[in-house]
Design a protein around this nucleic acid. Structure first.
Length: 194
DNA sequence: CAAGAGATCATCT
DNA sequence: GATGATCTCTTGA
C-alpha cells in the first residue's frame, strides 16, 4: 500500500503510462472511498503531439500540463464528460497520462449508485465512465496527486503483461494518430471497448 | 450485434 | 461559430 510519489510521475510519460497498469486509483470523498485497478492508459506528450491539448500552446486550460508532475489535469469533453489525466515529466514540458479504464475494487455500491447501473464490466470501462463512478470532475483540476484526496497506490502487484495500440478518438491528429501510445493489460475484461 | 444519432458546453478561432 | 482524448439510446437485421 504505497502511495506513488512525485518522482514516479516525473519519469518519461510512456514509462509512466505503462507502469500505471496494475496500480490502484484511490479517491477519497465524503460519500465514501472508491478504488479501482488501472487497466488502460494513454500517453499525451509535448507540443509536437497533435493529439495532445498542449499542441496548441500554453493556454488557461493546458496550464496544468505545463506545470510540475504529480498533479491532476481534469477537463470536460463533449460538453458532458470529465476525463482524468495525471501530469508527467518536468515542469514546462507538457505531458500527461489519460486514465481510460479501471477494474472496480472498492466502493462498488457507491460507483453503481453514481452511475445508475449494476454491471461491473460497464461501470468504469471508459474515461468518462470512471470519472462519474469516482466523482471526479473539474473541481479536482490542478489537484495534488501526492495528497489525500486522489492518488495512486502500488499494492505490490507484479507488473502485468500488456499490449499497446493506437490511441482512441484522435483521427484528426495526422501522423500522431498512429502512435502506439495506448496501453492495456493483456486480456483484461475491464478495458474500454474498441 | 452494429451502426448512427443526439446530448451539451468549455475552449479556442 | 466549430469542435471535441465520450457515452447512451434507438434502430434494424
Amino acid at each position: 500500500m504505497l502511495k506513488l510519489q512525485r518522482t514516479f510521475y516525473e519519469q518519461p510519460t510512456l514509462q509512466v503510462a505503462q507502469q500505471l497498469l496494475g496500480k490502484y486509483l484511490v479517491r477519497r470523498h465524503p460519500d465514501g472511498l472508491t478504488v479501482g485497478r488501472i487497466v488502460e492508459t494513454e500517453a499525451y506528450i509535448g507540443t509536437e503531439d497533435k493529439a495532445c491539448h498542449a499542441s496548441r500552446g500554453r493556454t488557461p486550460r493546458t496550464e496544468v500540463m505545463f506545470g510540475p508532475p504529480g498533479y491532476a489535469y481534469v477537463y470536460l469533453i463533449y460538453g458532458m464528460y470529465d476525463c482524468l489525466n495525471l501530469v508527467t515529466e518536468a515542469a514546462d514540458y507538457p505531458a500527461a497520462v489519460l486514465i481510460r479504464a479501471v477494474e472496480p475494487r472498492e466502493g462498488i455500491e457507491l460507483m453503481q449508485a453514481r452511475r445508475g447501473i449494476d454491471k461491473l464490466l460497464n461501470l468504469t470501462s471508459g474515461p468518462g465512465k470512471l470519472c462519474r463512478a469516482f466523482a471526479i470532475d473539474r473541481t479536482l483540476n490542478g489537484g495534488d496527486l501526492c495528497g489525500g484526496v486522489l492518488y495512486v497506490e502500488d499494492r505490490g502487484e507484479p507488473s502485468p503483461s500488456y499490449v499497446t495500440q493506437p490511441r482512441v478518438g484522435v483521427d484528426y491528429a495526422d501522423a500522431w494518430k498512429h502512435k502506439p501510445w495506448r496501453f492495456l493489460i493483456r486480456d483484461s475484461e475491464f478495458v474500454s471497448s474498441p
